[in-house]
C-alpha cells in the first residue's frame, strides 16, 4: 500500500499518521507538501489532523480552496481512496467531498478524550478489519467536531454511509456519550461510493498499545482495512 499524507500549513498529525502506517505490514507512506502532491501516484491519500491555516474562517475552509483539493476531486471520481481525519474531515466537508458540515462542539470547548465508537459498516475499504457493530476505543481532539448532516442523517444511515457513531461501552447511543453534539452521534461518514471516509476520532493515535490507556490498537484497523482492500483481500 502506497500512502501519501498531505501536509498543509498547520497540519499537525502528518508524522503521527506516518507512524501508524509504519505499523502496517507492507505499507509505505510519505508526507508530501500539499502543493507537490500528485494523488494518482498513491493508493491512499490521507488528509491528517491539525489546524490547516490555523482553522481561520472555519476549520478546513481555507485548505478546501487549495489546488490539491481540485486534484483530489478527480482522484476520487477515478476511485482513489481518501481518508480525512479530524481537520482532514473538516476539509473534506468544506470541499463538498463529504456531506454535511462540522460545527463548534455543543459545550463550546475543545475536547480531548478517549471515546467509545460503534462500527456501523464493516464492509468498506476503510473498515473491513472491524467487526460489524463492535465497540472500539479511539481519542478525539477537536473544537469543531459537531457533525451536522443538514437533515440527511437518516438517509446516511439508510445508505450505510455512517462509519462510526459515538457510543457507550456496550454500543448504546445516547446524548450523554455524544461528546460534541453531533447529529445522531455520527463520528465518521463515507461518500456515496465509499472511497472517501471522514472521521473526527484519530485512528493514528490508537494504533499502538503503548499509547492507549486500554492497551488497544483499534485505530490501526482503519489502515489495515485499506491495506487489505488494496491487496484485493476485501
Amino acid at each position: 500500500m502506497r500512502v501519501a499524507i498531505a501536509k498543509f500549513p498547520g497540519s499537525n498529525c502528518d508524522q503521527d499518521v506516518a507512524y501508524a502506517i509504519s505499523r502496517v505490514p507492507g505499507a509505505w507512506s510519505e508526507v508530501v507538501w500539499h502543493t507537490e502532491l500528485s494523488p494518482e501516484r498513491y493508493e491512499l491519500v490521507v488528509l491528517p489532523g491539525g489546524f490547516s491555516y490555523a482553522d481561520r474562517l472555519r476549520a478546513g475552509a481555507i485548505a478546501a480552496h487549495t489546488p490539491l483539493i481540485e486534484k483530489l476531486i478527480d482522484y476520487v471520481k477515478d476511485g482513489g481512496l481518501v481518508l480525512g481525519i479530524c481537520n482532514g474531515f473538516q476539509i473534506l466537508v468544506e470541499a463538498g467531498l463529504l456531506l454535511g458540515s462540522l460545527l463548534p462542539n455543543k459545550g463550546l470547548r475543545f475536547i480531548c478524550k478517549w471515546v467509545s465508537l460503534r462500527v456501523m459498516n464493516s464492509d468498506t475499504p476503510f473498515t473491513n478489519a472491524f467487526e460489524e457493530s463492535e465497540v472500539v476505543k479511539m481519542p478525539i481532539a477537536h473544537y469543531e467536531g459537531r457533525y451536522y448532516a443538514g437533515g440527511q442523517a437518516l438517509r446516511l444511515f439508510e445508505e450505510r454511509r455512517v462509519a462510526f457513531v459515538y457510543a457507550d461501552e456496550r454500543g448504546g447511543v445516547s446524548e450523554e456519550c455524544n461528546p460534541n453534539g453531533s447529529d445522531n452521534s455520527i463520528a465518521g461518514v463515507f461518500n456515496d461510493t465509499f472511497n472517501v471516509l471522514g472521521m473526527m476520532p484519530h485512528p493514528e493515535r490508537a494504533s499502538d498499545p503503548l499509547l492507549s490507556p486500554y492497551g488497544t490498537e483499534h485505530g490501526l484497523r482503519v489502515f489495515l482495512s485499506v491495506a487489505n482492500y488494496v491487496k484485493g483481500g476485501a
Partner: peptide, 19 residues
C-alpha cells in the same frame, strides 16, 4: 482543564493527564 488541551498530538503520550 486538561480535556481542553490536545494531550495526544505527536503520538508520544504514554500516560495521559489524570491517569
Amino acid at each position: 482543564v486538561y480535556e481542553q488541551y490536545d494531550y495526544e498530538v505527536g503520538v508520544r503520550t504514554v500516560v495521559k493527564p489524570g491517569d
